[in-house]
Each structure stands twice: as structure tokens, then as C-alpha cells.
Design a protein around this nucleic acid. Structure first.
Lengths: 242, 242
DNA sequence: ACAACTTTTCCCACATAGTGCAACAAACGC
DNA sequence: GCGTTTGTTGCACTATGTGGGAAAAGTTGT
């Protein structure tokens, strides 16, 4: 279904272009005739997913895409059943806990419970974080068996930026069953994450906690990881039965 | 461009269906052959906007729609320039202020600044609220000249549920240049909103404040509305020049 | 575990929907 | 205002999408 694929590809393109796109630019980018480019944008506009701003001829993503997203969050069945487990995890670790899924080369936070501590790592439902330098992200990469990208953005001096090294690291995560982010995304923040597996042992989400490095010290990591793994297993059990 | 329209219509349908959709159901809903329904869902799945869960045959909105939304929020040019004006508005009124746009039969909050008061109305970027019983919503309806829906959901005993009455009320809002929500959505909460107009005097967004009814009393409404209108005009000036 | 059923996918001849060209219209720059 | 660039529309052509039916996959009941 070429026409539909192309239309959706236009949305993909627009999502990556702050500057929007013009008919000619779209035709060039996707090697289409300008007629087709024009008609694609017109149809997308007509459906409300794309719009023009002011009197400009450029096209941009429209508000309606937020509506889809809003509906997704309201209907995704992972959030509610997970809350009590996250609460328990926070009670056990005293750190902020969250559940995330894989989303288009990023990790998407679906649910969270904040730490009661004065110094805590903040979290927000809907937040999007990179894959290669967070515990939840690396956990998703490892258990989804995602290919490692060529370019890895550096966030701190501990961020793994060498693809080969990351590949090996992901292998290690699969073996030990949890992921550790040792100040690789934010200085002073250490995170742990474990996979939520379905009945086929394929990953559907990941549970993680984030804490200040001072509190979530190296000698506490191993024991805390066990707690996180148990929470992940509990969620698996709730979602997919004993 | 029929195929694309249909594909996008499937997204619309899925957004309203918590239960997802099967091939046969889609064929029935949109009066298509099952072959076409099957192919549409397959193409949407291939592009990542739709997915199946577990071993079910039903199709659901996928995470990727959140990615579009995330991109929209990051790139929409309204948010940043508006912040200082909202801050000033909060300073003047001591109430929570926000900027919203029209989104598919709802109002979408794009930016906010919370009141510094102990008792305050909460706000959140990304929140979606109904049109017919909020100040920002009614303001958007009035200045977009939207048709009044047949059914108006009742949230409090003050919610206007009669379409004819709402139509007249919207006319009044257009005339006076601002909208008042007098505990029509949440009991104890009163809100005011004014339109942000572009150079053609057509509405692009709305600025509003929300406060506890006890503080935002009836005798303060008129004067406070003026402050909100001035903030809206300021934003218009920033966005579209003197 | 097997048969009867439902649902989905695949295949293929057919026709509609989408294509590119070119002329037209609109917007932009100078 | 005029030339240039960019976007839209009409039309003949054909590639893309269509529907029926067969096969495959999945579900249900005994």
C-alpha cells in the first residue's frame, strides 16, 4: 500500500524537521513528483495531522498528533496494573521507580512513582530518554536485541560512545538480567533496570529505579538490582499470569 | 488520495477504541472488503503507528504515535515566547496561567505557569480539557466559530448542557472578548480566558488563568479579565509584531 | 486430539485510483 | 511591477489498489 506508506513517511519526516517542509522539498527528499508531494500534504492536512502556519506555504505536524498520543496513554493496558508494584519498589528502595517501553529509538516512560526522599531523581510520565545511556534504555536495547547505532551521543564523561563496547555491554546486561546506568546520562545519578517479559520471554517493558549516586552506592547495586528484578518478575506475573 | 485518507481514518478510529480493532471489524466499520482492511492494518503496522499485542489478532495504536506528539511539543513555536508573559500574568493575578490551542474537539494546554499560592489550581503541559465547560475551551469555540455539539457532557451543576444556551453564551464571549468558566468544569474553580489573535484577527491560541472561586470572586472577575486580555494582546504582539 | 468454524492472508484478473507532464495560478523577490 | 520560483489542477496513461475466492492460520467445542 504505497500511498499510505508514503503518507506515513511524510509524518516521520515532519517529526524530524522543526522547520517543516515545503512541497518541493518533500518531492526532493522522497524522490516524488511535486504533484504527488502536493497531494500527499493536502490529504494529510485534510485529515488534520498536518497543517500550515499563518500564510507560510510550509507544512508542519498539527495538534491532532497529540490527540493520538493522548489516546494511547489513556488506553495502554500496562499502566494501571503496574502501579502497586512500583509503589512497593519505591518503598523497598526509597528511590524513584518507573516503567518504560521502547519507542522509535528511545525509551518512553509510561508510569512512575517518585521517591519520598528530599533528594530524589525526578520522573514524569511521557518523558522520552535515550537508549544507549540509561538503565531502562539499555535494558530495552539488550532484550529487544536492537542493533547498536553507529553514533552514540555523549552526555557525561561516563557515557559509552564506542559501539563495539556498548554491544559487549548489552551482552553482559542480557546475561546478568539487569542494566546499570552509572552516571552515563546525568552526573550524580545511578539507575537500575530489569526487563518485564511475556510468556514467550520476550521483553514488553522495563522497570527501573533512579537514585542519587551518593545513596545508590556501588556496594548497594547488586542487592538493589535483585529487588528491581523481583519487581519486574512480579509485573510479568500480573500481566501474563503465573 | 483515498488510500492515505483511509489509513488515517483507521488511526482516528483506533484512537477512539480502547478495545482496538480486528480486520473484520474494520472492514465493517469502514465498509471495506476484508482484504483492504487487512492491508491497511498491515501497512500501518509496518510503519510502526499500529501494533498487535501479545498473540491477539487485534490492532492497537502503537508507541510511535507518542513520538509524533513529542516532536510536536518540541517544535511548536508558541511555547517559548509565551513564557515571560505567562509569568507576568501569574505575578499580576496570583493565579495559575496557561496557554492552550484547539485540538480535535478539545483544548490542549501547551504551556503553563503555576500560581505561587498555597491553594492553587494545578496545570500541566499536555493536558487535554473539554471545550464547552472551560474558559480556554469556550474561548476557542467562540473565536474559531465552532459549531456547538448536540451532546454536552455535564461535569458540575453549573455546566451548560443546552446547545442553544451555549451558542448564545459563545456569542456573548465573542462580544465581550473573554470567556468565564464559573465552576462549570470543576467545583470551586473559576477561570478566565482571552484569545490570542494573528494579524488577520483569527484566533491561534488562548491564554487563561484558573483560580479558586473563593479568591477569584465575582467582583474581581471584570478587572482580572482585563489583565488576561492584555496578556493575550501582548502575546499576539510578540508573535505577529506590533 | 480432531473436526467444524471463524478470521486473516494470499493470489490474480480487473478497474479504479494515483501518476507525471504541462499549462495555469499564486507567491516571492527585487 | 515584472521575472522567477513554487504550488495546484486537468488529463491521458498505467501502476496501484480492489474484490472474490482459495488457502492458511487460529479458535472453539466435543
Amino acid at each position: 500500500m504505497q500511498t499510505l506508506s508514503r503518507g506515513l513517511a511524510v509524518l516521520d519526516l515532519l517529526a524530524e524537521r522543526e522547520e517543516g517542509i515545503s512541497v518541493t522539498e518533500l518531492a526532493q527528499q522522497m524522490t516524488l513528483s511535486t504533484s504527488v508531494a502536493s497531494r500527499l500534504l493536502k490529504t494529510l492536512t485534510h485529515s488534520g495531522y498536518v497543517s500550515q502556519r499563518g500564510h507560510s506555504r510550509r507544512y508542519y505536524l498539527a495538534e491532532k498528533v497529540v490527540w493520538l498520543s493522548h489516546s494511547y496513554f489513556q488506553h495502554v493496558p500496562l499502566r494501571k496494573p503496574v502501579q502497586p508494584v512500583l509503589q512497593q519498589l519505591v518503598a523497598q528502595t526509597q528511590e524513584t521507580a518507573h516503567l518504560a517501553v521502547l519507542m522509535h529509538q528511545s525509551a518512553l516512560v509510561l508510569e512512575d512513582v517518585k521517591s519520598p526522599a528530599m533528594l530524589r531523581v525526578d520522573s514524569e510520565v511521557g518523558r522520552v530518554v535515550p537508549l544507549h545511556c540509561t538503565a531502562i534504555g539499555k535494558c530495552l536495547m539488550a532484550f529487544h536485541a536492537l542493533p547498536v547505532p553507529e553514533k552514540l551521543e555523549q552526555y557525561t564523561d561516563r557515557t559509552i560512545t564506542d559501539p563495539a563496547q556498548l554491544a559487549e555491554h548489552l551482552h553482559h546486561i542480557r546475561e546478568q538480567g539487569y542494566a546499570l546506568d552509572d552516571e552515563e546520562f546525568n552526573i550524580g545519578v545511578r539507575c537500575l533496570a530489569a526487563p518485564v517479559l511475556d510468556s514467550n520471554s520476550s521483553i514488553v517493558a522495563t522497570v527501573g529505579i533512579s537514585g542519587p549516586a551518593a545513596r545508590l552506592s556501588h556496594d548497594r547495586v547488586a542487592a538493589t538490582a535483585e529487588t528491581v528484578i523481583r519487581a519486574a518478575e512480579q509485573i510479568s506475573a500480573i500481566l501474563f499470569g503465573g
